[in-house]
């Protein structure tokens, strides 16, 4: 597969959230607004690129039997770095995302890419794969964030354009599930159309 296709696959065809349905927990939890969706997406992208690169470099040194714990330690180290950086430079966003930053460790996208891609490929393709997947994840979070913010509080990136409250349900838990459900259905439909042609 050429590198362009490798990069682009994360956006629609193999989008981690909308097609593979990995990493649903942060998707539902942090997308109450567009800004926190992007923040979470970029933090995850950073961890994904770094861990993919690191794992691709050390893959020959790791004994096969203990590879999963090794991958998890590498990922946890990068998550700690992101956690501390965000606490220092973007304290407001860090407070909004809260417990979901350390929980990037158990985001199945990252371990999934390490196991299924970085462990078998060279460093550069792994970095490209990580970037594409990470940005695909960010894109899905952004769409969720924009939709939920628009319907839930009637604002776009924090700019309010209605008076009073929106449909509060979309900011709360049920809206997250329903919104993601319809989004996945939409992408399912699009992919089915593309495949049929």
């Amino acid at each position: 597969m050429n590198q362009r296709a490798n990069f682009l696959k994360g956006f629609l065809r193999e989008n981690p959230i909308l097609v593979l349905v990995l990493g649903t927990c942060p998707t539902l939890a942090v997308t109450t607004s567009a800004v926190s969706g992007i923040g979470m997406g970029l933090a995850t992208t950073f961890v994904l690129i770094c861990s993919n690169a690191a794992i691709a470099m050390i893959k020959d040194l790791i004994p096969d039997k203990v590879r999963i714990p090794c991958y998890i330690v590498v990922i946890a180290a990068f998550v700690t770095i992101v956690d501390l950086l965000m606490a220092a430079y973007t304290p407001a966003l860090h407070a909004t995302l809260g417990i979901f930053i350390p929980l990037i460790v158990v985001n199945c996208i990252i371990l999934g890419r390490a196991e299924s891609y970085a462990a078998k490929n060279a460093v550069l393709p792994s970095i490209i794969d990580g970037t594409g997947m990470g940005l695909g994840f960010t894109l899905a979070l952004l769409v969720m964030g924009v939709v939920r913010e628009l319907l839930g509080s009637g604002s776009f990136f924090g700019h309010k354009f209605i008076t009073g409250d929106g449909m509060l349900m979309f900011v709360l838990a049920p809206g997250a599930f329903i919104c993601l459900g319809f989004l996945i259905a939409l992408v399912n439909g699009i992919n089915r159309k593309l495949a049929g042609r």
Partner: peptide, 23 residues
């Protein structure tokens, strides 16, 4: 269930309704 909603989407929507009940 409609074709595109089969599988995960309908499960998520159901979970949303369940979550609404818990509210």
């Amino acid at each position: 269930i409609p074709e595109a909603l089969k599988g995960v989407p309908i499960s998520l929507i159901t979970a949303g309704l369940l979550s609404m009940a818990f509210m």
